[in-house]
């Protein structure tokens, strides 16, 4: 059984968080950067690591490990920021995803992708577009629009932001 929303052959970029391999559709990926200096923005949750200077524009960076309930990403030679374009409240926004390492780009046929299992992953199922199978290994294909949706980013902010808003 394949995933209905995926109908043609697509290319995916894989990256690693801890021991797990994830993939995102390359059409969402704008570029991959080395880990640079990140400026923390106050009153934001821990997984929102801060902002970086991407050739003159200020781009937010999210720590994927923290977002998915792992420990904070440590800086190594392989640490990368994947710059993705996501649709945020109807507009295209650029967001950086901090990951342990970037692997490769490969093609997957629609029939190679299976729906997300209901149980068995630490991840919330709505983040998962499907499970790709490659060399007997399962790869979690992420739905970036869901992972970086305004609810995901603002609910977390709301908890910390609430007292200030009340005060104003």
């Amino acid at each position: 059984m394949s995933v209905t929303s995926i109908t043609n052959t697509r290319q995916y970029l894989t990256f690693q968080l801890g021991n797990e391999i994830f993939a995102i559709d390359v059409s969402n990926v704008r570029e991959i950067l080395e880990f640079t200096t990140v400026t923390k923005v106050p009153q934001t949750p821990e997984f929102m690591r801060g902002v970086i200077n991407l050739r003159g524009s200020v781009v937010p960076v999210l720590d994927m490990r923290l977002k998915f309930g792992m420990t904070i990403t440590e800086r190594t030679v392989n640490t990368c920021i994947i710059v993705v374009e996501v649709s945020f409240e109807g507009d295209t926004t650029v967001i950086g995803a901090l990951v342990d390492s970037v692997q490769e780009v490969f093609e997957l046929e629609p029939e190679q992708i299976e729906p997300a299992p209901r149980i068995g992953t630490q991840l919330r199922t709505e983040f998962i577009k499907g499970m790709g199978k490659r060399d007997d290994q399962f790869i979690i294909i992420l739905d970036v629009d869901k992972v970086f949706s305004s609810e995901e980013l603002s609910i977390a902010q709301g908890i910390k932001g609430e007292p200030e808003r009340m005060a104003v």
């Binding site: 400026t39 934001t44 902002v51 524009s57 781009v59 945020f88 507009d91 932001g161 808003r165």
Partner: peptide, 27 residues
Amino acid sequence: IKTLSRVYKDVDSVSGATILGDGTVAL
């Protein structure tokens, strides 16, 4: 003055960002 991403629309103590000479971002 650079606008902060809309991701930070709820942060009200910061009105924007700027890029310093060494390329880092200051709020």
